[in-house]
Structure formats: C-alpha cells, structure tokens
Amino acid sequence: MIRRPANLRRFGLGLLVAMPAALVVWWFLAAPLLVPGMAPAFAWLLQLIWPQWGPAVEVNGNAWLVVTTLPLLEQPLQSAAIPLGPRRFTAAFALFWGLVLATPGDLPLRRRLRQLLAGSVLGILPLVLLMALLAFHFQLAVVINHQPALTVTPPSVHVLALPYPGWQFHLIGVGRQLGVLVLPTLGPVLMWAVLNRRFIRAMIFTGLLSRLPAAAGELDHRDGRA
C-alpha cells in the first residue's frame, strides 16, 4: 500500500474546513459588495468593446441590468436592456480563498494574506469580469439575432441591428459555455496553482519520489523470487 504524503492529507483536511468557511464569507459578506462594486469596471469594459451600443450598467439587487442604446424595432424610441446575474461568477473568489487557506506550508500569515489579496485583485477579479463579458456577449447575440440558443430565449421584440453571422454566433455560444461552465471552476484552481507552485511541485514530486523506490523494490523482489 502506498502512503499518501502528509501534506496532501493536511491539504484535504484544510479544504474541508476552509472551503465552507470561504463560501459562507462569500455568500453573506463578499458577494453583496462585489456585485455593485464591480459594476463600474464592467460598464467601462462594455463601453470599450461595444461603444456603438452605448452600454451602461444599473445595479438591481444581485443583478446587473445592461442598458444599451440599441433601438427596438417595435418602439424605436426605446432601447434594449439586458439583465445579467453576476453573483454566480463571483463564486470564483470563494473557491480561490478556500484553496489558498487550505494550502499547508510555512508561509507567514502576512504573506498568505498578501497572496489572497493579490490573487483576488489581479487574478480572480479580471477573470470574473471576463466570465461576465462572455455571458453578456451571448445574451446580446441572442437578442440581436433573435434566435434561441443554449436554453436562452430572445424577447418577443426585435432590435435594429445586423445579426452576427452563423459561425460567429456559435463561437459566441462556445465563449458563453467557457465563461459559465469552465472558467468559474478551472480559473481559481489555476490561479491558486500558479501562486502555490512550490506546494504543487512538492506534492507531485514527493508523491512520485516516494512511490518510485517502493515500486522498484517490489519489482526487484518479484524478479528475485521468479
């Protein structure tokens, strides 16, 4: 039987404690601040990418309402507004915090806090904005093309804009799947792995090195008996 390295066990136990704690902090304290706090940055990004639709973000509880200047066919003096729920994307913060706090090692508290802060601001925050952008782009494409896709149905009104070509529409759908399904889980894990390369290396190499001699010895023993 191969013995697991001690730090892997400690990491597993740490996850059991740190992850629920991080999720509680995120749900009750962080998310209600993050949703309105990120809105100006998201609005700025939207303006940068789609200046022709003049988007602005209004915060409505836990949701964003992206107000555009896209005119409606049926009421040309009114514009399209697209709702977006960013709370689910901010769960990436909780995942990252849980992983960082559960990681065993001899890092002093100040360095660990610095890692939490730097990783959250420089890594997770842009990632969350990217997820929201990918999701919004898909919602926008569904509204513009007036075509249901991936369980999203367009409103009954049409907007006065040229549709995306078919291939682009599908690519935007792939981007949405990436932003909604892949990045929220994989992104924080990768960010944590980058910031904890030493731990990852130790975990993998210690594990491999501890297994290799044992396995080699077992083979020699079998060869000898044969």
Binding site: Q47, L48, P51, G54, A56, T69, S79
Partner: peptide, 22 residues
Amino acid sequence: VVVLAGCDAAPQDLRRALAMLH
C-alpha cells in the same frame, strides 16, 4: 487613451434624453 475610450459621453447623453422622453 484606453481609459478614455471606455468613457464616451454621447451614449450617456442619448440615454438621458430617452429617459427624459419617457
């Protein structure tokens, strides 16, 4: 340049005008 590119005043004014209209 990048920051200013994301702060266009014309759409804001248009949104304000449309809100006034309604």
